[in-house]
Computed example of a mutant assay.
Amino acid sequence: MAAERPALAGSELYDVATPEIEVESSEIVFTGRVWDVRRDTFAYGDGTLKREYTDHTGAVAVLALDDAERMLLIQQYRHPIAARDWEIPAGLMDVAGESPLAGAQRELAEEADLVATEWAVLSDFVMTPGGSTEAMRIYLARGLSDADEVFARTGEEADIRRAWVPLDEVVTAVLERRVQNPAVVVGALTAQAARSRGWSTLAPADALWERREWVRGTRS
């Protein structure tokens, strides 16, 4: 007899916060220039576990879509993967007191010299749940125009390459594994699916970012 395969309705699919998991101790074991590595000791089941992970600020990204439904892509060097990958404007939530929306607007201006009049939340996701607290929010930005200020760029951003690519062609590049940046993958596929539903899945630009709230500020 075949083993029973538990079923769950799609409407019941929710990730669940676990405030009942009590962290007994938490310490930074490595302090980096951008982010730290933290070690937690916590009770789980019948025992005690230790886990080390990247203590990340969280990040925002912007899928800028013009009137012809072309996505703005930027290409820059990423040392850990030894490649110049195609990305969308994105950056850390590392400015004290800055809202996620303000951070996204800042990144769009700094990396693409653009401003937008229409903003909405396109997607929320976590990068590496087994090893990092990094949560990312992708905004959809439309009503684009040139920013008043052109930003000076240094380091890897000094030679950023920009390109406008039709949304459907970006999706094809994702499906053919020619581009693999997670924000591009999630953003392009989500945007195409959201468009097919008349953009009904978009959330207000100031929507509560629950997933980031689950981890930020909970460690001492």
Rank of each mutant, 00 (worst) to 15 (best):
V171H: 15
E169T: 05
R177S: 08
E169C: 05
I160E: 09
R162P: 06
S145D: 03
A188M: 03
E169R: 00
A173R: 06
V171N: 15
E149F: 08
A152K: 09
V185C: 01
V186N: 01
A188H: 04
L144M: 07
E149Q: 10
V165E: 02
R162M: 04
E149Y: 09
V174E: 13
D168V: 06
A147T: 11
D159T: 15
I160P: 09
D159V: 15
E176L: 09
V174D: 14
A183H: 07
T154D: 07
A183L: 07
A163K: 13
T154G: 05
R178M: 02
A173D: 00
V179T: 15
R161P: 11
E169P: 02
V186G: 03
E176N: 08
L175P: 03
L144K: 07
V174T: 14
R153I: 02
A163L: 12
V179D: 13
A147S: 14
A158K: 11
L175F: 04
V179S: 13
V165I: 03
V174L: 14
D168E: 04
A147M: 11
V165H: 00
Q180G: 04
R142H: 11
V184D: 12
A158V: 10
D148E: 13
D148L: 11
D148I: 09
A158T: 11
V170M: 07
V165F: 02
D159S: 13
D159M: 14
D168L: 07
L167E: 14
A188E: 06
A183D: 08
D146M: 11
D159R: 13
R142M: 12
R177G: 06
P166D: 10
E157V: 10
W164I: 08
E156I: 06
V186C: 03
A163Q: 12
E156Q: 05
L175K: 07
G143D: 06
G143A: 11
V179Y: 13
V186F: 04
V174G: 15
D146Y: 14
A147F: 08
R153C: 01
A173G: 03
V165C: 00
A158S: 14
P182A: 01
F151E: 04
T172H: 00
R153N: 03
R161S: 13
V150Y: 11
N181A: 03
V174N: 13
L144H: 04
A163Y: 12
R153Y: 00
I160L: 13
E169M: 02
F151K: 07
V179E: 12
V170S: 02
W164T: 07
Q180D: 00
E156D: 04
R162K: 07
R177D: 12
R161T: 14
D148Q: 12
G187K: 08
W164A: 09
L175C: 07
S145P: 00
V184T: 13
P182E: 05
S145G: 04
V186P: 02
A183T: 10
D159Q: 14
D159G: 13
Q180M: 02
R178H: 01
D168C: 05
G143I: 05
R161H: 15
R162H: 08
G143V: 08
R178N: 05
T172D: 01
A147E: 09
R161G: 15
V179C: 14
R162F: 01
L167A: 15
R177Y: 12
V179N: 12
T154N: 03
D146G: 10
F151C: 08
F151L: 04
D168A: 06
L144V: 08
